[in-house]
């Protein structure tokens, strides 16, 4: 799967994009967040408060309980501030 990080999430995680094989115990976005937090460092910091974060799965705004497949594109970002 493809993971994308935007705005301060990109800065805290130190990357804008990465490829990841869907880990066996990751069924939903929430599971993926727990998996990423276990990396520690910038990831733990970036995902510390989910209220400050939003997620899109395959370019659709999605919830934390969204089921995931290995072919998915998952983007993490702060609430949007365009316009």
């Amino acid at each position: 799967m493809t993971l994308l990080y935007f705005a301060w999430l990109r800065q805290k995680t130190g990357r804008g994009e990465e490829q990841l094989s869907l880990p066996a115990d990751v069924k939903t976005v929430s599971d993926l967040v727990l998996f990423l937090k276990k990396r520690g460092g910038g990831f733990e910091d970036a995902f510390a408060d989910l209220r400050r974060l939003r997620v899109a799965v395959n370019q659709d705004h999605s919830g934390w309980d969204t089921p995931l497949r290995d072919s998915d594109e998952v983007a993490f970002f702060p609430p949007v501030t365009g316009g």
Partner: peptide
């Protein structure tokens, strides 16, 4: 809706 849904971020 642009303000709350379109994926833009300002720095």
């Amino acid at each position: 809706y642009l303000k709350t849904r379109a994926p833009f971020w300002k720095q």
